[in-house]
């Protein structure tokens, strides 16, 4: 998955209309809530086989951090 594809997918995962970049700060997104965390967990597991925990999400600050976790 390219970075561009990842950002498009993340827009759908988070169900946000905001244009996303790797630098987008998660806490700046209105949609970054517990639903989105669960949706991101499902996305990383489904598309990358990567398991994450709540602790991981406390440590992630940006969309780029999620990409890094996915191995991009």
């Amino acid at each position: 998955m390219t970075n561009e594809e990842f950002l498009t997918e993340m827009q759908d995962v988070l169900q946000t209309e905001e244009e996303l970049s790797m630098d987008t700060v998660l806490d700046d997104l209105d949609e970054w809530d517990s639903l989105s965390v669960m949706a991101t967990m499902a996305f990383l597991e489904k598309s990358f086989g990567i398991k994450t925990t709540m602790k991981d999400y406390h440590e992630m600050k940006t969309i780029g951090d999620i990409a890094k976790k996915a191995g991009l």
Binding site: V37, M38, M41, T52
Partner: peptide, 10 residues
């Protein structure tokens, strides 16, 4: 514990 249950489920 939602996230643990989610990971167990997967």
């Amino acid at each position: 514990k939602g996230e643990d249950v989610f990971n167990f489920t997967m």
